[in-house]
Nucleic acid binder design. Structure first.
Length: 443
RNA sequence: GCGAUCGUAGCUCAGUUGGUUAGAGCGCCGGUUUGUGGUACCGGAGGUCGGGGGUUCGAGACCCCUCGGUCGCCCCA
């Protein structure tokens, strides 16, 4: 029989395992913990939606819709699309489930998204995001709360160093249109000097010329008018409330008047947390206010703000994530002991201790393995122990070994776990004391 | 979609102007040690040199195509 060629993984997909998985998991767990602190409810969304959900909300002409979506016909002939982002699906759910009754609605979710793009580091065809949205609040307080959440998340992940929050306002619809006209006029006057890409953008998406990376565009983009002169009184007031709110919460930010969004439904606040540590994929978390989106899906005018963050990108910025060590390693000797090992393992696990059986291979090897997984102790079960009903309990830190029954093992483990916690508490305390001492010296 | 660059063992990489049986370190398995973590020493497995075609007496190396990674552009988290 001819041997078949093993199929390859689909381009731009990843098999996340080992250290990468630890990083991924750590990002998600931190997000889940912090979002509760802010009272965001979790929500699970379908991975695919009718194509219209994204086509309408993102706009038919955007790159995402026109060339990056995974769209297909199902067996019933309906056009479906693997979600390229969360916001549109959440807005659809808000309308189809009548979630208006829960307003103000604070939602968070995370999961895979799909875009047909050229893969690079930190950029995949199936990628994963964290997402947070506040629907139904038109006040700037929602924008501030969302940004505080984002800021705290990055701090708790330990990656806020070198990441800056860039902030801008796009004003309300009226301000935005006035500014847009002024920009088009400005760029039209310099059209001949713009790059070819930007000349295209002038037709399609003039705001985007502002953040062009093309060298020849920079002088023209830099000399373009800021929105400030075109902001209505209300829009100006809104932005002031956002920035004052951030200052009050101790969230640092910088104004980037060139930061824009291409889509029409974006209003007021636009922001990006940016790092220079990821090359071209510098944006780590981004979002803004999208008061016009739900209306574009056929719903009532509904204010909303949200952000999304790339899990892979956050994971890459993380310092080493220590793997959670296994607490107990069980080493049975021989057939009957193997059966006994399973029983002992379930008893230990039932008492909330993590335990793994290393049942095959050389004993010496298994002992080394126990050490490698970071076990606090090894439990050895052999002929002698089977007879006595006890096990050998070896503390792997001290090398001390005693014969105990399982109940005594559990007791001993509580002590061990407690003293571990105490040690790490002491370490934290020492760190704190040092910080305080340093602060004292600084004064 | 455009441009550039790279692809040799599980991983990180050597491999001379084209020349015999393609190497090293780490990791893995085994032995010295039949029920105890480390070190050392010894041994072993593991490669259709990403894939296909071409040039040549001879290709891991040169040419073409293709797949994939990476870096820019576009777009975006």
């Amino acid at each position: 029989m001819a041997k078949i060629q093993t199929p390859q993984a689909v381009r731009g997909t990843q098999d996340i395992f080992g250290e990468d998985q630890e990083r991924f998991q750590h990002v998600v767990e931190t997000f889940e913990r912090v979002r509760r602190l802010y009272g965001f409810k979790g929500v699970q969304m379908p991975v695919f939606e009718p194509t219209a959900v994204f086509a309408r909300s993102l706009g038919e002409t955007t790159d995402v819709v026109s060339k990056e979506m995974y769209s297909f016909e199902d067996r019933g002939g309906d056009s479906l699309t693997l979600r390229p982002e969360f916001t549109a699906g959440i807005s659809r759910a808000y309308l189809t489930n009548g979630w208006q009754q829960h307003v103000p609605l604070k939602l968070s979710t995370h999961g895979p998204l799909f875009r047909y793009e050229r893969p690079q580091k930190g950029r995949y065809r199936q990628f994963h995001q964290l997402d947070a949205e506040i629907i139904g609040v038109s006040e700037a307080a929602a924008d501030v709360e969302l940004l505080c959440f984002a800021d705290q998340l990055l701090k708790e992940l330990g990656i806020s160093d070198g990441v800056t929050l860039q902030l801008n306002t796009l004003g309300d619809a009226e301000s935005r249109d006035a500014w847009r006209d002024a920009l088009v006029e400005h760029f039209q006057a310099h059209k001949a000097d713009l790059s070819k890409d930007s000349q295209d953008r002038l037709e399609r998406n003039p705001l985007r010329i502002l953040d062009s990376k093309e060298r020849q565009d920079r002088p023209i983009a830099d000399s373009a008018p800021d929105i400030d002169a075109y902001l209505s009184t209300e829009a100006k007031e809104f932005f002031t409330q956002v920035t004052e709110g951030l200052d009050a919460c101790g969230v640092s930010w910088t104004r980037n008047s060139r930061l824009v969004r291409g889509l029409d439904y974006y209003r007021h606040t636009a922001f990006e947390f940016v790092t220079d540590r990821l090359g071209a994929q510098g944006t780590v978390l981004a979002g803004g206010r999208y008061d016009g989106l739900i209306e574009s899906l056929g719903g009532p005018v509904t204010p909303a703000v949200g952000w999304a963050a790339g899990i892979e990108r956050l994971g890459m910025l993380l310092a080493d994530v220590p793997a959670k060590p296994m607490e107990l390693a069980i080493l049975p000797m021989g057939e009957t002991a193997s059966a006994k090992a399973l029983a002992v393992a379930s008893e230990l696990r039932g008492s909330q201790f993590s335990a793994e059986i290393f049942g095959s291979g050389k004993f010496k090897k298994r002992m080394a393995r126990a050490n490698q997984v970071g076990a606090l102790a090894a439990i050895i079960i052999g002929e002698d122990e089977m007879a006595s009903g006890k096990v050998q309990f070896k503390n792997l830190a001290t090398g001390e070994q005693t014969e105990l029954d399982v109940a005594a093992v559990i007791e001993k483990m509580w002590d061990l776990r407690f003293s571990e916690d105490l040690d790490s508490f002491d370490a934290d305390l020492t760190d704190l004391e040092q910080e305080v001492a340093q602060l004292g010296e600084a004064d």
